[in-house]
């Protein structure tokens, strides 16, 4: 195949250096989760709650004026931003939303002191520079798969970070789950998890895997991984972009800091 070799050699280096210094994350213009400004939310209307399809925005019990915002349910559809009459919801570029504790996806009035890095499972040194992922689609819309497949394109070039996908759960360190967990995928998902050797970690990728998202519940769909598998990293997004996935994986490996606490992105 000398022609293709030449074809490849004549092309410039396509890979980004991100998250290395000066690298391009490739997400210019990509909208993230909307920011909630509680101080601007004062007239007690229900516009955003009615416009929130997955139920990320709900009313706070006993407090007419205040809202609960759960980013674990948010699909970044920007409907709340459009309907809010007071500008309390604002479009942002906050897409690096991976957290270790599901509670960190819920907006909190006042930030508690950050926990002293009490990690549910610390990724040991041996795995830090070489990680194998087994992906399972438990009922997604294929948006998440499209972005996962993008990780291996020459721009993101996931291999350069020592992270690989593996066909066999026997070789996998991380189970990366997309989709809400439909009735027909639940036993399959469990079997895949059980086939993995210890130590093993689980990442819930995409709002569907975190909470069920737009497909939550009903006669055949699930509510995400909560109570199904022990999750180490939660990454909401619809779908999370490839840079957000890379950030989440590096966070799991202890090579990147968590950016979100109490529903706020640093």
């Amino acid at each position: 195949m000398p022609v293709w070799t030449l074809f490849g050699l004549t092309r410039p280096v396509a890979s980004t250096r991100w998250p290395g210094e000066g690298g391009d994350d490739g997400q210019a213009g990509v909208q993230g989760m909307p920011r909630y400004h509680a101080d601007k939310c004062d007239n007690g209307c229900r516009e955003c709650v009615a416009a929130c399809l997955p139920g990320a925005l709900t009313r706070k019990a006993g407090d007419e004026a205040r809202l609960n915002m759960d980013y674990g349910r948010c699909i970044a559809c920007q409907m709340c931003v459009e309907v809010c009459p007071t500008g309390a919801m604002e479009t942002s570029r906050d897409w690096a939303f991976a957290v270790r504790d599901r509670e960190d996806l819920k907006w909190q009035e006042a930030l508690q002191t950050p926990p002293a890095q009490a990690l549910k499972a610390r990724v040991e040194g041996a795995f830090r520079n070489s990680l194998y992922i087994r992906h399972v689609d438990a009922g997604s819309c294929n948006g998440c798969e499209s972005e996962l497949q993008a990780l291996n394109n020459p721009f993101y070039n996931l291999h350069r970070l020592g992270i690989f996908f593996t066909p066999s759960p026997r070789f996998a360190d991380v189970l990366l789950v997309t989709g809400s967990g439909t009735y027909a995928m639940r036993d399959v998902l469990q079997a895949t998890y059980e086939a993995m050797p210890e130590p093993k970690w689980v990442m819930a990728m995409g709002t569907c895997a975190v909470s069920g998202g737009i497909a939550a519940g009903g006669y055949s769909s699930g509510h995400g991984l909560e109570g199904v598998l022990p999750v180490d990293v939660w990454l909401p997004g619809c779908p999370p972009n490839p840079a957000a996935i890379i950030h989440a994986l590096l966070m799991l490996l202890g090579r990147a800091p968590q950016r979100v606490r109490g529903g706020r992105c640093e």
Binding site: M1, W4, T5, F7, G8, R11, A14, G26, Q27, A28, G29, V30, Q31, Q78, T91, G143, S146, E147, Q149, A150, N152, N153, P154, F155, Y156, P239, N241
Partner: peptide, 24 residues
């Protein structure tokens, strides 16, 4: 190489999409 080039071209289109706010 053919695979890499195809996926790279796809990525370029998705990055063009992003000017509207969403890669999809």
């Amino acid at each position: 190489v053919g695979q890499a080039e195809g996926k790279l071209l796809e990525e370029r289109v998705k990055q063009i999409h992003a000017v509207t706010g969403s890669r999809f």
